[in-house]
């Protein structure tokens, strides 16, 4: 504020004292406004940054029982008690500079997967329920979902027997099964393909850790990345039929073929079915003697 303005102010006001208090009130208001604006700006910056920081990278996995990511970031107070109570020491808190939201717990399956402790000590230790205490059975944990993501490199697809992921899976036979497929390369062998089932996979990451490739072909991904979602309006006919016990649409009329008299078509019985006489004739549509065929042709032409 310039001197002139100041003088103007004190002239305006009735007494010297009043002028002073008015001035200081102005200054106070100005300062407050400045602080308020600064705070608001800062808040905007911090809020925006937090939005970015909360995008959880796909190669990291939250401990079992973790709330969905948007809730987790409002629940976890970054105390590290889960980290401390994991007997396998495979959890860690994100440090400044890492891509995971600062101070929150995570693990990397390829380094150390979750051993799926029966008593879930990590979740039990959490003072905020960010790792939900409602998770009672570790088999119900959904830390992510394993996906056999590289079906070009996975050696099972080359026709080699591997099945390491299948064998290490704590829910072997449920979360991963081996499905046989024909081996088109050799024409006579089978491919033994590991298939993950989302209704059982906990996302523990043991398969990813065990994959024998240099870069795992099977990876645990965040469920929302790994899963598709069928439109709610979709109805699968055969399931509806099963539910209802009968077909829900008018049954198809039996298809009829436009065939010469006496000829029938039945797919299940070897296709075309000719009348018995025709059959006799057609037993050998061509004579065994090629000269006869030539003769037939000549006769036709001369006619």
């Amino acid at each position: 504020m310039s001197d002139k303005q100041k003088r103007g102010l004190s002239v305006e006001s009735e007494g010297k004292q009043a002028g002073k208090s008015k001035l200081s009130r102005r200054k106070f208001m100005g300062d407050t406004l400045k602080t308020a604006c600064g705070t608001a700006l800062l808040g905007l910056g911090m809020g925006t940054y937090s939005r970015q920081a909360s995008s959880f990278p796909a190669w990291t996995i939250r401990p079992p029982g973790a709330l969905p990511e948007d809730e987790f970031s409002g629940a976890c107070i970054r105390c590290g008690l889960c980290v401390r109570d994991c007997p396998y020491d495979m959890l860690r808190l994100a440090e400044l500079g890492e891509q995971v939201a600062l101070g929150t717990p995570y693990f990397v399956a390829r380094e150390k997967p979750c051993e799926m402790c029966e008593d879930i000590p990590c979740a039990a230790a959490c003072p905020t329920n960010a790792l939900s205490h409602e998770l009672k059975n570790i088999d119900d944990a959904r830390m992510g979902l394993a996906v056999l993501i590289d079906q070009e490199e996975c050696i099972a697809f080359q026709g080699l027997r591997c099945e390491v992921c299948y064998n290490v899976c704590p829910l072997e036979g449920e979360a991963i099964t081996i499905e046989m497929q024909p081996n088109r390369r050799s024409g006579k062998h089978a491919l033994f393909i590991p298939v993950v089932h989302s209704d059982a996979c906990t996302g523990c990451g043991k398969c990813e850790k065990a994959c024998i490739l240099e870069e795992a072909a099977i990876k645990v991904l965040p469920t929302h990345l790994a899963k598709g979602l069928l439109g709610k309006h979709y109805r699968l006919g055969w399931k509806q039929k099963e539910k209802a016990g009968h077909s829900l649409v008018t049954p198809d009329i039996k298809h009829r073929y436009n065939l010469p008299e006496g000829v029938r078509y039945d797919y299940n019985k070897g296709g075309l079915e000719l009348p018995p006489e025709a059959k006799l004739e057609r037993d050998s549509p061509f004579s065994s003697n090629p000269l006869e065929s030539l003769k037939k042709l000549q006769n036709q032409e001369s006619k």
């Binding site: 911090m46 970054r78 860690r92 600062l102």
Partner: peptide
Amino acid sequence: TSAIVWELFNPVSLMFRGIIFGIG
């Protein structure tokens, strides 16, 4: 934002947690 935003910045927890869990 329904996220604990300040704990992404808080120097107090940053330092204390850093010393114990890794400082980055």
